[in-house]
Amino acid sequence: MSVFHYATYKYVTIRDSRLGIGYYITAIIIISLTMAEIFINKGYLEFDSYPIGSLRIMLSDPKIDAFNYEPLSKCCIKGSLIDNCTMQCRYLDAQELSWPIQSRTLSVMTFCKERWQSNQQSSIRPEEFLTLREDKFYTLKPEEYVVKVEHTIIATKFHGNHDLKIAGSQRSMKGWLYDANGSRIREMNDGADKLTISELFSAGGVNSLEQVSDALNANGKTYRRHGLVLHVAIKYTNTYDTWFGTGAIQYGYHVSRIPFADYRVNELTPIVQGMNSSEAKSRILRKRYGIKIEFIQAGMLGKFSFSCLVIKLVSGLGLLTLTATIVDVLALYVLPDRFRYRSYVYESSPSHEKSTKQD
Rank of each mutant, 00 (worst) to 15 (best):
S278Y: 05
V327C: 08
V329H: 06
L319N: 14
K281L: 12
N276L: 05
T269H: 03
S307Q: 15
R264W: 00
P270T: 00
Y333E: 14
S277D: 04
R264G: 02
F295P: 09
I326S: 08
D337Q: 10
G302V: 08
G274P: 05
R286G: 02
L322Y: 12
Y333L: 09
L317A: 14
E294P: 04
I284N: 05
K312F: 06
S315M: 15
L313Q: 13
I293F: 00
E294W: 01
C308I: 06
S278C: 10
C308F: 09
P270Y: 00
L317I: 13
L301C: 05
L320T: 12
G318Q: 14
L322H: 10
L309E: 11
S307G: 06
I271S: 00
A331W: 03
I284C: 02
E267M: 01
L285S: 08
F295N: 08
F295T: 08
A331M: 12
G299W: 00
G302H: 04
L319Q: 13
I271T: 03
V265H: 04
G318C: 14
G318A: 13
E267Y: 00
S282R: 12
L285K: 07
V334A: 06
A298I: 05
L313M: 15
F306Q: 15
K292E: 06
I311Q: 13
F295G: 06
N266I: 04
G302L: 02
I311L: 13
S307K: 14
I326Y: 05
G274D: 01
F304N: 12
I326A: 11
D337R: 07
K312Y: 07
K312G: 10
V334I: 05
I271R: 06
R288Y: 00
R286E: 00
V327F: 05
S277H: 02
S282K: 11
V334H: 04
